[in-house]
């Protein structure tokens, strides 16, 4: 990935990491992607309300900087495992929103041909090995992918996204231990949005910071403000460098917040309106990143307007594509259970 030229870098010497490390064009693309995640989820929510999407979904609105900050420094063939709250990870890793919408609509043009839906959204071509409906389910799988990387000497780094709820699953502890023992190129990213469904981390987790658990597995534990893109990206960048150098895993705790409920059935009885309002008004990751970009002269109002317009169009086209795509035939119900053999 091209980085900013030296002259430009010097003039940015006192700015946060990403403003020194990435070009203006790249940073504007990050803002574009963050808007794309936000509008995709708003669009999906609206389609759900209108009855165009069934089932349920878990929205990551408010966590866009975390997904983008982790994925930005990854190479295209690096891999991720994602969670039930995985739309942002999928877009951040390079997915097309039209194929994501198509999946949510249950269509054959979707990433999983309509078999997976929101909770199993994947984009294997871009290294997203899949969201997961089981809390913590993807963590050992990411360690296995990292073992493949090491055994096949591909140089790939694997990121495992999971939430604060997963840090109390046995799979988390078993996986971190093995990754550390075998020094595997994997990064564990805990997106701590404060609640495992309705249960706060204070009520569920014995340590104050989930990153402290890294000490039990002899790996660095890093805490970042998950709503500040630059902080997340810098931590990801360092963890990737460590993994690629063969020095082993890192646990990053990205402290963030979901504006919406856990899923579509959530009545938000476990948190106050004031708390939600505070995060939305004062700590929104897109607003924070946008104002930094503006302050440091990377974008102006016109540029922001152009991004918003482009995203709106992409979302509208994506929904149209999904709507117009064919549904799978009932006769294909049994497909993909086993690998078709000649």
């Amino acid at each position: 990935m091209a980085t900013a030229s030296k002259a430009v870098t010097d003039s940015r010497a006192n700015l946060p990491f990403v403003y020194r490390h990435y070009s203006a064009e790249q940073l504007r693309e990050v803002l574009h992607k963050m808007y794309l995640i936000r509008r995709f989820e708003e669009g999906a929510e609206e389609c759900y309300t209108r009855g165009l999407i069934h089932g349920t979904m878990h929205l990551s609105i408010g966590q866009e900087a975390s997904a983008m900050g982790i994925c930005m420094p990854l190479a295209e063939d690096d891999q991720i495992t994602s969670t039930h709250r995985g739309h942002g990870h999928c877009i951040a890793k390079g997915a097309e929103v039209k194929r994501m919408f198509a999946e949510f609509f249950g269509k054959t043009t979707g990433y999983c041909k309509g078999r997976g839906g929101s909770m199993h959204i994947a984009d294997v071509g871009k290294g997203n090995l899949g969201a997961n409906g089981i809390v913590g389910g993807g963590i050992p799988i990411a360690v296995g992918a990292a073992l493949s990387s090491k055994m096949m000497k591909t140089g790939k780094v694997v990121v495992s996204f999971f939430g604060d709820g997963a840090n109390n699953e046995g799979a988390f502890h078993e996986a971190l231990n093995m990754a550390a023992v075998w020094k595997l190129p994997v990064i564990f990213v805990c997106e701590n949005n404060g609640y495992g469904m309705s249960t706060s981390t204070a009520r569920s987790t014995a340590v104050k910071n989930i990153a402290e658990r890294a000490a039990a597995y002899s790996m660095p534990g890093v805490i970042v403000n998950g709503n500040i893109f630059s902080e997340v990206a810098e931590a990801s960048h360092q963890a990737i460098a460590r993994a690629r150098a063969g020095e082993g895993p890192t646990l990053i705790e990205s402290k963030t917040y979901r504006h919406r409920g856990h899923s579509k059935s959530d009545r938000n009885r476990y948190r106050t309106k004031e708390e939600i309002e505070d995060w939305m008004s004062n700590r929104d990751p897109i607003t924070l990143f946008e104002s930094e970009l503006r302050e440091f002269g990377f974008i102006d109002d016109k540029g922001i307007e152009a991004i918003r317009d482009a995203v709106a169009q992409e979302i509208a086209e994506g929904i149209e594509f999904a709507n117009a795509s064919p549904s799978p035939d009932i006769s294909e119900t049994g497909n993909y259970v086993y690998t078709e053999q000649a």
Binding site: P140, I141, V143, G144, A145, A146, L147, E174, A175
Partner: peptide, 14 residues
């Protein structure tokens, strides 16, 4: 659990 998951992840990736 973790060991089986590592095997699944390794199989998934080649």
């Amino acid at each position: 659990l973790g060991g089986a998951g590592v095997a699944v992840g390794a199989a998934l990736t080649g």
